[in-house]
């Protein structure tokens, strides 16, 4: 089993619904976020393009945050989900430094590192992550890459895609449909 997400940049309007839904689902404190929107503008007027995309932890196969964690708090759970065990985290921030996607922050009230969990509490029950289920444009696709009929497998089948910072060698599991 390998959980992954595909983000359709042709449809994302950058509304930020995924960010608020994550905030309310996971009690993310205000001023912080586990997912966010990136807008890339290229070209010059009137030959301009925009790419909008919803980003979060890439749940990498070769996760530098896991490798560099001195306590073993950062770990890879079933299905490849990268998680932090709060009780084992000392808040040293090594993982934050090592992450090429800037996907982690120190929780202001509790002092440990917090990040996207792919909404494991929902996924374990067969639901989608909150961001996927709220997206008004249906631009987020989630599921098991080992299952050819999963939403994410189907989304990747007929479209070109890219990953972010492939040069970092992290084997990221967020796929951006282009």
């Amino acid at each position: 089993m390998r959980y992954a997400m595909a983000i359709d940049t042709a449809k994302c309007v950058g509304c930020g619904d995924c960010v608020v839904a994550c905030q309310t689902e996971n009690n993310v404190p205000h001023g912080y976020c586990r997912d966010w929107i990136v807008e890339n503008v290229s070209g010059s007027y009137p030959n301009v393009q925009i790419e909008l995309r919803s980003e979060r932890c890439n749940h990498c196969d070769n996760a530098p945050c896991v490798r560099c964690c001195p306590t073993g708090s950062s770990h890879i759970a079933e299905g490849g989900i990268v998680l932090v065990t709060p009780e084992e985290c000392i808040g040293c921030g090594a993982c934050i430094e090592s992450c090429p996607y800037d996907a982690r922050y120190v929780h202001p009230d509790f002092g440990y590192v917090d990040k996207c969990t792919f909404c494991k509490h929902r996924v374990d029950k067969g639901q989608n992550p909150a961001c996927v289920d709220v997206c008004p444009t249906h631009c987020l696709h989630f599921g098991d890459l080992d299952d050819p009929n999963s939403d994410v497998s189907k989304a990747l089948k007929n479209r070109d895609w890219k990953v972010l910072a492939p040069e970092a060698g992290t084997k990221p599991q967020l796929y951006f449909l282009i």
Binding site: N26, N27, P29, H30, P108, D109, C119, H121
Partner: peptide, 13 residues
């Protein structure tokens, strides 16, 4: 910490 809704509580969903 714009407001303190969940402060001092578990952040478990």
């Amino acid at each position: 910490k714009g407001f303190d809704l969940f402060k001092n509580e578990s952040i478990e969903s």
